[in-house]
């Protein structure tokens, strides 16, 4: 999966040392909470779009709320997401319908 962050897949932090497989790829996370967030985010995007895989995921924003653009093939999906302190999705809003 192509990502815009070189550090932690959800927040770009380079602290920590959590490595886990997500979407068939070994990824770096600063802590277990970010791993829970990222897995939940990927699952939610796939559920909303019906996609089997996410080829790229760009994330901006911070803990107050993140804006995401997921792509696969020529299709893109924009959303806004916020998590609770346990890393579960608290708010999820589609920013635009998935384009075929």
């Amino acid at each position: 999966m192509k990502r815009n962050y070189a550090g932690c897949a959800i927040c770009d932090s380079t602290w920590g040392d959590v490595w886990a497989e997500v979407e068939g790829e070994r990824m770096f996370f600063c802590c277990d909470l970010c791993l829970v967030q990222f897995r939940g985010l990927c699952e939610r995007i796939k559920r909303e779009t019906g996609w089997a895989t996410i080829e790229s995921l760009e994330i901006t924003g911070d803990r107050r709320g993140r804006t995401c653009r997921a792509s696969t093939g020529s299709r893109t999906f924009d959303c806004r997401v916020a998590f609770n302190p346990q890393g579960e999705i608290r708010r999820f809003e589609k920013a635009a319908p998935a384009r075929q």
Binding site: W15, G16, D17, V18, F29, C30, C31, D32
Partner: peptide, 9 residues
């Protein structure tokens, strides 16, 4: 933080 403790990170 190196131990990935969420509070310190």
């Amino acid at each position: 933080a190196g131990e990935s403790d969420p509070r310190h990170v």
